[in-house]
Design a binder for these strands. Structure first.
Length: 164
DNA sequence: ATAAAGGCCACCC
DNA sequence: GGGTGGCCTTTAT
């Protein structure tokens, strides 16, 4: 999560989505961030914090192209998440839970072979850089509770509803 | 090196 | 319902 290695033409932009305006960052290597921030300022601060070494160019046109590809056509562009081995294995496991279904933090821990790391799984899921495409919103608590969501529980509810 | 903080869970009351 | 202890990774001292 320090920087985008070998990343060519890093760019970002804003565009409306079914869940409010989102910020998307990408390069030729794929999407590296997708967030649903309160403000554009906080979105940019978030990017700088995640990739302090990377200079992003603003490109709302490409952003719009990606967003409609994702939310209108239901396609999934190539992803390029940056994280530790542990985080990557979890983000990978998240992508195995099918649309319209949910899983739990405990099951994900089980899936990556670290059944006892439940708590750490929660933390790693919270650090998911690519909201929606890496479906962290499909993960709820074992007791049936919604759990948390980086961009607000309301947003998590909306996504789950939208996928039904 | 060490401490503190998490999108949790199981178990108790 | 609520509180507690244990678990594991990450980030900040």
């Amino acid at each position: 999560m320090r920087q985008l290695p070998s990343c060519s033409e890093p760019s970002f932009g804003f565009h409306a989505s079914p869940f409010g305006e989102c910020c998307i960052a990408f390069s030729k290597d794929g999407i590296c961030a997708l967030t649903f921030p309160e403000t554009r300022e906080s979105a940019y601060a978030d990017l700088e914090h995640r990739f302090p070494e990377t200079e992003f160019r603003q490109n709302n046109e490409m952003a719009g192209h990606y967003i409609s590809q994702i939310f209108d056509k239901g396609e999934k562009p190539r992803l390029h998440p940056i994280g530790t081995e542990f985080q990557l294995s979890i983000w990978n496991a998240l992508q195995q839970v099918p649309k319209g279904k949910t899983s739990t933090y405990a099951k994900i821990a089980e899936a990556i072979g670290r059944p006892k790391a439940v708590r750490a799984v929660g933390t790693a899921i919270g650090a998911n850089p690519i909201a929606f495409l890496i479906p962290c919103h499909r993960i709820i608590r074992s007791d049936g509770g919604l759990g948390g969501f980086r961009w607000g529980l309301e947003c998590k509810k909306l996504m789950l509803e939208w996928e039904k």
